[in-house]
Amino acid sequence: MFTRDKTIEIRCIVAKKERLGLGVLFHLLGDSSWNVRETLAKNPWLPGFLVWKLACDSDPCVRHSIAARLNLPEGLVRKLAADWDESVRQVIAQRSNLPEDLVYKLAEDKASSVRSRIAARSNLPEEWVDKLAADWATSVRRSIAERPDLREDVVKMLSEDKDVLVRRSIAAREGLPEAVIISLVLETETVPAIFFIDREDIPKDIKAKLALLS
């Protein structure tokens, strides 16, 4: 039987197959290789009760694959949102149908990588945009800086951020106020004037002022 094959690649091929019998599924569920169990976790034909079992797998790569599945029951989403491994919580933070209370919970996650995923979510309440814009982690503030729906006061605040990567993310935005553009060029020296002069979205009068400064 291929489920007992010594080659991991062969067992992974079996784990990808659709409509496997329960005997085969249970054998793969107990496979000694996390690669095989991870492949099984990605199988779209996996019965619901086995999805739950793999969500409790000892290997985070397997749980990561379960977290990425479509149409997970809410109870399982909540379980994985509390997973000890941050890579699993990252995937949950990116789910489009995440319950509101979990969004807020993960916005305060101890791992900056998880908070960064929340910061990038659409329809994030303004209070959380403001809070994450002041986060200690550069990656979180950068995710906020890349949001298309930022208020002008948040744009201005992040244009003066201590981290150049955050300021460059602001510089890349379209429709920047003139004061922010001048600040990015002169005060913080985030980008050279030519960065804005060469852009089509910058008004001609601002380009003329920048040309005088360069």
Rank of each mutant, 00 (worst) to 15 (best):
D135W: 13
V51M: 12
K53A: 08
S96F: 05
R69A: 01
P177T: 04
S58K: 13
R117Y: 04
D83N: 04
S116Q: 08
K42M: 12
I202K: 02
W34H: 14
D149N: 07
T39K: 10
R78S: 04
L184A: 11
C61R: 07
S65I: 02
S65R: 06
R115I: 07
E189M: 12
D205E: 12
V185Q: 02
C56M: 14
S116L: 01
L40V: 13
L132E: 13
S116H: 00
R147K: 09
S214G: 10
S87L: 06
P99M: 12
I8W: 15
F26D: 11
L210H: 02
A15D: 10
A111C: 06
A145W: 00
I8S: 05
E9R: 15
R147Q: 11
R69L: 03
V155P: 08
V14N: 04
K16Q: 14
A211N: 07
V154P: 02
R4F: 07
A41N: 07
T138P: 10
I144G: 11
L150T: 03
T138R: 15
K207T: 00
A55S: 13
K131W: 03
S32D: 15
K16I: 08
E178C: 05
S87N: 02
L106A: 01
A93N: 06
S122W: 03
S96N: 11
D31P: 04
A145H: 06
A134C: 15
T190V: 06
A93E: 05
V140T: 14
I182Q: 06
F195C: 10
L20F: 13
S112M: 04
L50H: 07
I181M: 03
D201Y: 03
A81W: 00
H27V: 09
S65Y: 09
A111R: 03
C12G: 09
R115H: 04
A179G: 03
S87H: 03
I170F: 08
L28H: 06
L102G: 04
S143I: 07
L102K: 06
L186I: 07
A41F: 09
L20G: 11
S159M: 10
K105C: 10
L20V: 09
E146V: 02
S122E: 15
P203E: 04
E38S: 15
I181L: 03
G23Q: 10
S113Y: 08
A137I: 15
T138E: 15
S113N: 07
I92D: 00
R173L: 05
S159T: 06
R199P: 13
L98C: 05
L106Y: 07
G30C: 10
Y104V: 07
I92L: 00
E127H: 14
H27C: 12
